[in-house]
Design a binder for these strands. Structure first.
Lengths: 341, 341
DNA sequence: AAGCATGAGTTAAACGTTTAAGTTAATGTT
DNA sequence: AACATTAACTTAAACGTTTAACTCATGCTT
């Protein structure tokens, strides 16, 4: 039956105190007597005032408790990717624990200008598909932490992709000499194809290139030749793309006997196709993945892959960001026993 | 090198016009001459003013372009559920198209009071785990649309769960007479167990009960008896729970030869276990799922299930909400040919 | 008893916009 | 020529808070 939403002013008028006091009752208990505070709070409950308006608080305090998670791609795509969604899980868990809200922001949008004014900070998961976002994020005054890629000297969270790729490749190449690589977003084209002479994109920013470097280092160390047309490009870690490419690869001749895949999704698709074709894995074809998603352990044979905890990454990213937002770092401490007690 | 962020006022002062004019240049082109507008906009670009502060706009306009998607459960849980994440895909796609932002809101949080002031509306996917949220949502002045459950007379999007359940059960019961049911959140306990004498919760609000009703109606029509201890309760549509329950079910005697599952995840876990145990499906054991997730078509044998398009649901929910937010309904029209031209 | 903290409030100026209402000059109407 | 209309701006009051600075008793030192 309220005519209009109650404001702090209305309440102050009704209770016969100043707006500052009401505000303090909600925000700064130390600024008024406990008794008055109790009274104000209970009166507010009675008349149906549920606390200071959050929109006004955002403007006044410059703080919204909203954290934007900038995804590499559209939300649609990211949410169905097992690795990304596990990352989101990690982030959301940590944020919820601190009472922060999660705004999902697509990496293929025009600009972050429409949110930058009201979010408390950014977590950026992978290089946004729209490269202009990176430029904007690089100069935003808001706290930011990047994951799986870097922006200048902003804090970031990574694994050593080059080394991880090296290790898995090194292991795979213990047997087999005919190598092919399934890479992710290595060139600037939307279609599935081999690399040939297409230029590699985003060389240093992209984890794909770090991984490629690792693969190639392992190949070189084992004296395995890897010609350019044996490096394949997939625009997405998507099953349909992967299946198509896998089909082409397995019918090409000479058929490779080692395939290094930059994601488990791709590797699994290749594995299933190979099995359907009657190819023996790993005797005739050795396959490696990347990420260590659940499904990679459910298949038979299980997939050899690089396990990384996306959930932990998400959690860490959130914690690093929150610490930047609050400006407070809580360091661990240790009690040292002296002789005074 | 900016000392502080530029405001509308600064810009107005520098360009020698009023703040209103600058504001209008950005928001209401019809309020000033095209030439002046051009000039203002280009000047703004030059001096590095990127447009009105969004936080201030939220307060002043009472509109943020943020839509809260209230999930049934924690974000962590929802994001890894194929059905829910497909729904999120649908929502996010539609929102992005309209330039709206997506705030993911967990259904196990305390209260929506911390966001209600600044979001433009709510999409509520399933009954929130914290039932108090429902009460709050029921009285919020903001537009809201619910999916897969109802709040009073708020707009909602549903499939006919009872009928769908009836149809799939009716089909399954063409053969087989020993029925068991795997239900979702039927009782108020967090553990996996049979229903026995536990009271069913949330009878009308929950889709689970509609589905149960459909199953039971089909059973009755076929004269199949279904005793209470043949109805199982699973607190989540989670693989580990499902596996455990499936194990118990398949080793119980007499072993059922028809199992109706309220989600594909559960059904798939049961299917895999049965196959591992050498049970012939569907000859010895008939299984039905619910939802029609991708994976249910990838297994052999493929799963009999109720297909519903979660993506379409998400899209529709977003569209219904946006129409409520804008207050404008755009109806289709048709040109009728008369004889005047 | 003068001086000085301290506690408990109040006042009023931000925060950065939008927009209804008002002003002015130019154009159109009769 | 007088009057009404319109285009193009400006003025100033919101929007609903927070918070630094101020007031005014009260109790505590010396």
């Amino acid at each position: 039956m309220k005519k209009t939403k109650l404001t702090l002013k209305d309440v102050a008028l009704q209770l016969g105190v100043s707006t500052a006091t009401i505000s303090n009752a909600f925000n700064r208990p130390d600024q008024l007597s406990a008794s008055k505070r109790e009274e104000i709070l209970s009166q507010c409950k009675k008349i149906g005032y549920s606390g200071p308006n959050k929109a006004a608080q955002i403007l006044r305090k410059g703080k919204s408790n909203i954290v934007a998670l900038v995804l590499a791609d559209s939300i649609s795509y990211m949410v169905s990717d097992p690795v990304a969604s596990t990352f989101i899980k990690g982030v959301s868990g940590a944020l919820q624990k601190e009472g922060k809200h999660l705004l999902l922001y697509p990496g293929d949008s025009k600009s972050i200008l429409d949110v930058v004014d009201f979010v408390d900070g950014f977590i950026c998961y992978g290089a946004p598909r729209n490269a202009m976002l990176v430029d904007e994020l690089a100069v935003t005054p808001k706290p930011i932490v990047t994951v799986d890629f870097d922006i200048d000297d902003k804090p970031s969270i990574n694994i050593d992709n080059e080394e991880a790729a090296f290790e898995v490749a090194d292991h795979a190449l213990n047997e087999g000499d005919n190598l092919a690589i399934f890479g992710l977003r290595l060139i600037d084209s939307p279609s599935t194809c081999r690399i040939y002479d297409n230029p590699l994109i985003g060389v240093e920013s992209s984890i794909s290139h770090r991984r490629l470097d690792g693969y190639l280092r392992a190949a070189k160390a084992k004296n395995v030749n890897v010609s350019r047309e044996r490096i394949w490009h997939l625009p997405e870690s998507e099953r349909s793309f992967a299946r198509q490419a896998a089909k082409e690869l397995l019918t090409s001749s000479p058929r490779p006997n080692v395939v290094l895949c930059m994601s488990d999704i791709i590797a699994l698709e290749l594995l299933h196709l190979a099995l359907d074709m009657g190819i023996k894995v790993p005797e005739e074809l050795r396959i490696t993945g990347f990420d260590g998603i659940e499904e990679s352990q459910r298949t038979r044979p299980t997939l050899t892959t690089v396990c990384q905890s996306s959930a932990a990454k998400g959690e860490n990213a959130a914690l690093v960001l929150l610490q930047a937002v609050s400006g407070k770092t809580i360091l661990p401490f240790e009690m040292r026993r002296g002789e005074t007690v």
